[in-house]
Design a protein around this nucleic acid. Structure first.
Lengths: 127, 127
DNA sequence: TCGATAGTTCTACTATTTGGAACTATGCAA
DNA sequence: TTGCATAGTTCCAAATAGTAGAACTATCGA
């Protein structure tokens, strides 16, 4: 299996970080990883906000977070342990991650009328 | 011509804001609009960082910024006047925009080796 | 060695983005 | 007025990116 790629701190771009967190599922996953004290496996997120996420999609979401430099993933036995690279990132872009997470929580608290936070509809597959 | 849509403050989502600013051209345009004291027309940006931007693409970039709630656009005669909604936005998501702009400037100052900040290659058109 | 579990890759399909061409709206000069 | 230049939008086709089911790989524990 291909080794996991993690960008070095100085190659992390603001565009990649914002892109990774502009997806409602990914920002929810990331917020939970940051909030938890211990590392999180991918499969903890097979449901995100009452919505089932196919595991292939979940895998790609984690890859996106990892390659944007937001999380550090490590294979431990059969599962993956994910932790945030928050302290490191805060060194490169001071205050960025806290501000984004704060904004995310502000939005969650204001409980949008009918879950209209999604940026777009997911691709639908033909049967 | 269709009237310009501007989302009310409370409908602005963190996902839409991050998505709008995850494009290297849009974040550059937005940074310049925020930095300038007077309103900017779209056509001021037909070149962004030495790169020519087709005006149809530029038009869509401004629409994206507008509909994400980042800028306020007003038609004045033949041109459009664009100003940032920064103060308003800072009320909904405190510290978010300053942190993003700061990160953008940090990255610009560190002058990446060969302009590799782009999130992806642009679509190439067949001849 | 078998089976279960966790995650990745392949693949076909859908959604979004791009940029040239055509179009719309406004201003200005004759 | 008409004519035309300027500024921006919309249409269209092509390209890129994202989705999820199926098949696959890797590890663990009987």
């Amino acid at each position: 299996m291909r080794p996991l790629f993690h960008p070095p701190l100085e190659h992390i771009t603001i565009e990649a970080v914002l892109h990774a967190l502009s997806d409602p599922v990914r920002v929810a996953i990331y917020a939970q990883i940051v909030a938890s004290s211990c590392s999180q496996s991918c499969s903890k997120f097979l449901k995100v906000k009452q919505k089932a996420i196919p595991k292939s999609t979940l895998s790609r979401h984690f890859k996106a977070l990892r390659e944007a430099g937001l999380i550090q993933s490590e294979r431990r036995g059969v599962e993956m342990h994910n932790i945030s690279r928050c302290p490191e990132l805060n060194n490169r872009f001071p205050g960025l991650i806290p501000a984004i997470l704060n904004a995310y929580h502000v939005q969650m608290k204001s409980k949008m009328p009918a879950g209209n936070a999604a940026k777009r509809k997911p691709a639908r597959r033909a049967k």
